[in-house]
């Protein structure tokens, strides 16, 4: 099938499915790789549909056709047996041709999807039970920074993510952009993808990783190149100092109540390594690894009782008075 005709058919054939394509869908490709995979998928899907329908038709026709009369099961009609043998042989050869053809399609797709670009923007992702650490590393340390559960990339540019795990095996998956790749303890994997358009794409851990595997999502924000540059420069800077009394009180409480033992806020004394870096937490879109959209209410609920929202996660419930909670929340909101 000529390429142009095929690509023209893709949206048509997947239309009934695309209708229910959500925000984490392989059927709504926004990346070069995911589009290529959908092409392959579409070819396989069409062939499969044709074959299945053909088999069901053969089955029905075989059952419904008028039968010659015979009463002894072994009274076989020799010419028929020979013809049938030939038909089965031909069908076998047809099956072979189909799967060989599909194999070639698959290899070609594989080659394209995993093609490497040496100039890709590189970032490192380290998975934890049950959140994502994202490290933008640079040769000069003052241009390196760490963030969590949110990956910002320039749209239209190839990106390479280096994948490592801090604990058990997880899997990095943003269906709108590309297929998944595991993050394996003691092994370094990598994955390249290119977002065609600016937008927000949801991703989720796809390898069972324990109690809260279900709540281990993240967002990929593909930004126009200049906006990405601005964000990057801003992210490089240390945290904003609180501007008001309540915020300063919150900063103190953040340390006094033990939050700083696990969380880092660059530019302050908070340097814990166990939990997500919170330097610019106020600018993120979700809380608790994609579990809730980030609003003052959800962030407050999360700090007040993380075990209620995501039972069994490693952030303990801290005994906080309501005024203390308000102060910490106010402080964190300012960390944009």
């Amino acid at each position: 099938m000529p390429i142009r005709m095929r690509t023209a058919l893709v949206p048509f054939a997947t239309l009934p499915l695309a209708a229910c394509a959500g925000r984490q869908s392989t059927l709504d490709p926004q990346g070069l790789q995911s589009a290529q995979i959908l092409n392959t998928l579409f070819i396989f899907l069409s062939v499969a549909a044709v074959v299945w329908i053909a088999v069901v038709i053969m089955l029905c026709a075989g059952l419904l056709r008028r039968k010659r009369a015979f009463d002894q099961p072994l009274a076989l009609h020799q010419p028929f047996e020979r013809t049938t043998g030939r038909v089965i042989f031909v069908l076998g050869v047809a099956t072979l041709a189909i799967v060989l053809g599909l194999s070639i399609v698959s290899y070609a797709g594989q080659r394209t999807v995993f093609a490497k670009n040496e100039h890709a923007l590189t970032l490192k992702i380290i998975s934890h039970q049950w959140w994502w650490e994202i490290r933008y590393e640079n040769d000069s340390p003052d241009k390196s920074f760490v963030t969590a559960n949110e990956i910002r990339i320039p749209a239209g540019q190839p990106v390479k993510v280096e994948l490592e795990s801090a604990d058990v095996i997880h899997s990095f998956w943003v269906p709108s952009l590309t297929g998944k790749m595991d993050l394996i303890t003691g092994q370094k994997n990598e994955l390249q993808f290119t977002a065609k358009n600016a937008g927000i794409y949801r991703g989720q851990c796809a390898e069972f990783c324990g109690l809260q595997h279900a709540h281990m999502a993240f967002a990929v924000l593909a930004l126009p190149a200049d906006e990405f540059g601005r964000w990057r420069d801003h992210e490089n800077q240390s945290a904003n100092s609180p501007t008001d009394q309540l915020g300063r009180q919150g900063e103190q409480l953040f340390r006094a109540k033990g939050c700083a033992l696990c969380h880092t806020i660059r530019g302050t004394l908070a340097g814990g390594q166990l939990g997500p870096d919170l330097t610019h937490v106020g600018a993120r879109t979700t809380v608790a690894a994609g579990t809730l959209p980030l609003t003052p209410a959800t962030l407050g609920a999360w700090i007040a009782d993380p075990q209620h929202i995501k039972p069994g996660n490693y952030m303990p419930k801290m005994p906080l008075q309501s005024d203390e909670l308000i102060a910490i929340l106010h402080y964190l909101e300012q960390l944009k």
Partner: peptide, 15 residues
């Protein structure tokens, strides 16, 4: 033969 096709189409270096 199908594996032969695979080794012709996919580089042994590709990861």
């Amino acid at each position: 033969a199908n594996q032969l096709a695979a080794s012709l189409m996919i580089s042994p270096c590709l990861r």
